[in-house]
Structures are given as C-alpha cells and as structure tokens.
Design a binder for these strands. Sequence first.
DNA 1: TTGAAAGCGATACCAC
DNA 2: GTGGTATCGCTTTCAA
Lengths: 358, 358
Amino acid sequence: MNNTPNHGQPPKSPSPAASTASTAPPTSTAVARHAGVSRATVSYVLNGLAAGRVSAATQDKVRAAAEELGYVPHAAARSLRSGSSGIVLIAVPADTVPAFGPLFASFLAGFQTELQSYGYTGVLHGASTGTSALETARTWAELRPAVVMALFGSPLTEQSVALLRRAGTSAVLSYGPPPAPGAHGIAMDHEEAGAVAAAHLLSAGRRAIGVVTPTEPGLEMFSGPRLAGVRAAAAAFPGARVEPLPLDHTEESAAELASRWGRLGLDSTFAYNDEYAMLLMRALQDAGVDIPGETAVVGADDLLLGRLLRPRLTSVRLELPTPAEVAALVDRLIREPETEPVVHFGSSARIVERESSR
Amino acid sequence: MNNTPNHGQPPKSPSPAASTASTAPPTSTAVARHAGVSRATVSYVLNGLAAGRVSAATQDKVRAAAEELGYVPHAAARSLRSGSSGIVLIAVPADTVPAFGPLFASFLAGFQTELQSYGYTGVLHGASTGTSALETARTWAELRPAVVMALFGSPLTEQSVALLRRAGTSAVLSYGPPPAPGAHGIAMDHEEAGAVAAAHLLSAGRRAIGVVTPTEPGLEMFSGPRLAGVRAAAAAFPGARVEPLPLDHTEESAAELASRWGRLGLDSTFAYNDEYAMLLMRALQDAGVDIPGETAVVGADDLLLGRLLRPRLTSVRLELPTPAEVAALVDRLIREPETEPVVHFGSSARIVERESSR
DNA sequence: TTGAAAGCGATACCAC
DNA sequence: GTGGTATCGCTTTCAA
C-alpha cells in the first residue's frame, strides 16, 4: 500500500491532461461574465438573497446564464468562506458493517434523507479499524464536519474527541456504545435487552442460560453488556446459572458447540441476534436436541427470519430511536455547540414471545 | 421539510457563539507563528517536500508545533488550491439499501479501505430517490468528486453524467445496471444468473419454472434481467414454461402465493435471492408442498442461510469483482480521465447444488 | 441596483 | 535554506 506522507492527496497524475472533456468547470465568475454582471450579483441571486437588491430582469439573466453553463457551486470554496461545511460525518467501522442487519440499514437510509431536509450533507465514512483512533479522527477532522456521529465500534477516545472539537466540530455523537469523555451519546440499552431475555427465560422456569457471544470483531461492545444484563437478572434467582458461549458465524462452529451441548447442561439460550439463533438452533436440532423442550432459544432483533423458523423464534426487540429524532438532535447540537455532553437513551427492549421458548 | 433555496447551507445559528469550546481551529499560519517560521515552510515540511529545502532542526520545530496545536489541514482549502478533492463518491440509493445483503456490505467495507490506500477518500452518499437525477447530480457535483460511482439504482442519466463531467469529475462509474451514456460501467450479468439457474433446473428435467420477482422498489433492475435470462434458457427447451411470481418480503404474501401453488402447476422456482427463497420455501412447506419432490427451489447469493435450511438450498452464486479490482479501476480512471467509457463485466455466475433442487 | 475588494486556508513559484 | 505572495471559488461588507 502506498503510504507516503502526502496527507491524503491522490498520487499526482503523470499525464496532466485537462481534468475533463473540454473546459474547466464553470465558476461564478464565468456566470457573471456570461450574464454581464458582477460575481457579487451572481452570488446574491443564486442564494436567494436578491430580494430588493437585484432587479427581476437581472435575476433572470443570471439564472439563465448559470443554467446554460451548467454551473454548480463549489462546496469546498463555500465552506472555506462560510466557515462551516454542513457535513454530518457518519462513521461506520468498515469491518463490522457486514454484521449489521437490515434494521440498521433502514435507519441509515432514513437518517440521511432526514439530514438532507435540514440542509446538512450526510456523509458515510467507513473507518478501517486497522488505524488508531487519533489517526482516524485526523482524517475526519480534515473535512471539518459539523458533527461526527460515530457508530458502534468506530474508534473514539477522549483524545480523538478533543481533536475533533478543536477542529471545529460542534459535537461528537456516539451511537451505540457509551460515549468517550466529551462526546454525546445515543446509547442502546443492551443490558436491558439481556435482562429482558433472561427475565423471560427465568420466569418460564429455566435456570441454566447460555449466552451466545459472537467472536466477530467489533461485536463485543454489544454482546458484553447483553451478557451482563443476563447475569444481573439471573443473580436475583437462586440457583440460576449463566454460561457464555463464544460462536463464530459458521456452521462448523455451531456444530462444534452443539456436539458438546449435553455436557454444558443448559436448558436455555439467548443468542446474539436472530441469525445466530438460527445458526445455533439448526445445529442443535441436527444434534437431536429438542427445542424448546430440552433447550429454549431466544434471539434478538425480531427479524422476519425468526418467524420462518420452526419452532418460531422468540426474540428480543430493541426499539431504536427514529431517524427523525436523531436528526433533530444533530441539528440542535449544531446550533448549540456548547451543550453539555449527555447520553440519550435511545432504546427500550421488549420480548416477542413465540414457540422457541415455550 | 425546510426547502428554502439556500443551496445546502445549514440554517444559520441564532447564537453566533464561537463554533467550538475555546479557540478557532489552528491553521497553518498558527503553526508557522508557533514555530517561528513562514507558512510556506510549514507547508513544505508537513507535506514531505522539505528534502534539501528546510533544515532538520526547522523541520522538527514545525512538526512539534503542529503536534502541540493539534493542527489538522483543512481539506476544503487544500482541495480548492489543488483543484482536486480526492473524493470518490459512492452513491447508494437510500431506499434500496436495506435490501442489499451482507455480500454487498462486505464489498463496500473492503472497497473503502482499498481507496484509502490509494490516497482517496471514499465517501458514501445515500441518494434519496425522491429527487431527480439532475438534482441529485448537482448535489454530488458540489463536492467536486474525482469519481462518482453510482451503485445499482442510483439515478443516472446522460444529462446528469454530463453535468458531473463538466464539474470536473474524471469519470462516472455505474455499478450494477448498464451505464448511462458517457458513464463507465461495471455490469453484473444478471441474465447469466438466470440462465445458469434455469439450465440447472431444465437439465434436471423441470419444465415449468416460476421466477420470484420482488415487489420492493429498486430491485426490478436485477429481477428483470434474471427473468429474461431464465426465459432465454427456457426457450431452447420445447415445452418449457416460465412464470413470473411477484412477491412481497412478507409472510402474508408468501402464504398467499403458496395457497394457489397447485393451480400454478409449477415444478420449480428460481427465487430472487436466498432470503426470498427461504420465505417461499417455508410457505410452500407449510402448505404441504414437498421440496424438492413437487417443486425444486433455487436461490441466489449463496448465503449461510441457505445451508441452514432443510432441505439445504441450491443457490446461484454471482462472483463479484473484488474491492481491489474496482479500486484499481477507479485509480486508473482518475489518472486517465479521457478513457473512453466502457463496460467491464464484473461477474460470472455458477450454481451451488444442494438438496432443494435434487 | 450594482460592483469592488477583502479574506477563508493551503500551496508552490520565485526571489532573497 | 527560507520567506513573500498570487491564487483557487465563493460570500459579504461597504461604497458608489
């Protein structure tokens, strides 16, 4: 990989041919010349600040010229001048992305649209977790984003938050895990998810609960608290036992786990999500374990998937904050950058009971 | 929604408090002052062009000052000056995103990392399909991206490609569908996928093939060609019949389809992907249809899911171009912007035979 | 009603 | 070895 310290600049082109087909991109100066007015006038007209300043005839001339030349303002120049980029940087840990479900994808889609309606430019940035938090923050800071929203496992430390804030970022918002010092947070209460699942199993008389913890990197921050939630709930029941069950996202891993199921002596499981639940359930069924008779299974996320399984899958549903709510929060943080960092609890968990845990 | 013509600027803050905690973000001027040198010197040192120009002692001073102040270069300023942003804009149709599988998510993750290693900044932009192609292109063009890679259903027309090119974009690359005039393309051969599936079913003696076509918006561009591929393959077999089967991504829709399965008289199905295959298979099994006895089922994408079903799911696997290949292509297009638009066929399909079609 | 001009931050040529 | 300084495209104040 080329890693010359060229600060993110692309390698210089060997052939300095004009960057595009014919001419250089039209600037506001070109529009002004074309319309026979000054650049100032162009700016007023095109930004809707022309009321009572520029005659209607002139406005038409300007707009026609812009249209004809295919003029598009230069965001970098504007942001340089105005001092703010209007960029909301949504950081996604690149190597965890595949593990996120459709639930999350649809949140993102709505969120981006929502931001646009506020006039911000939502920009997704896949952070490769190979690099340090500070280095990653530097990359982000170069864009001078109004807000950085760090999703899930995106690296974020006190230092990197500080760096971003010095670079003019109004707020850093951690979505998922508890925020680093200085950052706001939208926390999902994974402990509660675990607790809800455990409460359900315990009240059904189960006492030996396995908790599937994915070995995929970047997911510990969810599975950890969930496990803790299960443990907390179990602590209230004398004789209850909790067993972590590391599991790869592969058939082999599930088969291996199922093969030693008897020795584990578990009467119930809380899987990381519905997909892992399916993976485990299949392996258990293939190994002759009766579900829910011998072992109850509870998934999470309440995907369509779970309803297609037999027995149908009981699932814990985490209610996420809506895109509109989050966008409104982002807008507020931009307008009031000095707001004390605070954690907004964004979710509540409830159980969707089906056959796999009866 | 606020849609005042303010060209993407965020609403002005009512409280013009300093944008960040304490001071304004440090500039190269600040670093220069702090180090007791000129801005020019700072620029040389920080960009690694100081060899034989600046003394080692001075270089150290500069770097120390930059470090201490937490200096981060301003991408907008740099891009303004240098005339190129190094941004590779990856456009994703926002409302289709949830329908993409893990396959694609992992491609994206790798691609972003790959771009980074070339020195480009990969930026994902969720295009809300509510807006016109031209308007969307304008939004993109404001960022002056080096390349726009439009995924799947992102709106792209001859006009919008032209607009982007006038704005200095080296190349527009359409990933998935056949490119608009002026754009390069990485096409996935969905017809081949359909043909491969059909060939498999036909050679197993099946003659009445149902083809599941999702009703979700934005997916026709895949399902259409696949259906066409099936039809083409079937045309070679006298007596073969092909039946499109519209299906929502819901249990109800699948149940409804299953309820009239007898009347359809089909002995096989090619589903849009493994998830739709699972949906249909479940409904058919619930309706008492034997798989593969009465009806063979073939999915697509070869997800883990398919191996967990009973019977195990036969699937068509589309080999996508690797992130590295695509990144290399992007790099080439940036360095040689005048390359004639061309379509790169990026995929080949093969069948993974399992129990559901035996 | 319009225009001249300053300046946002970084780069690189040219002179010292 | 180092430092002025013009320049990228755009916004906005002030003057005409």
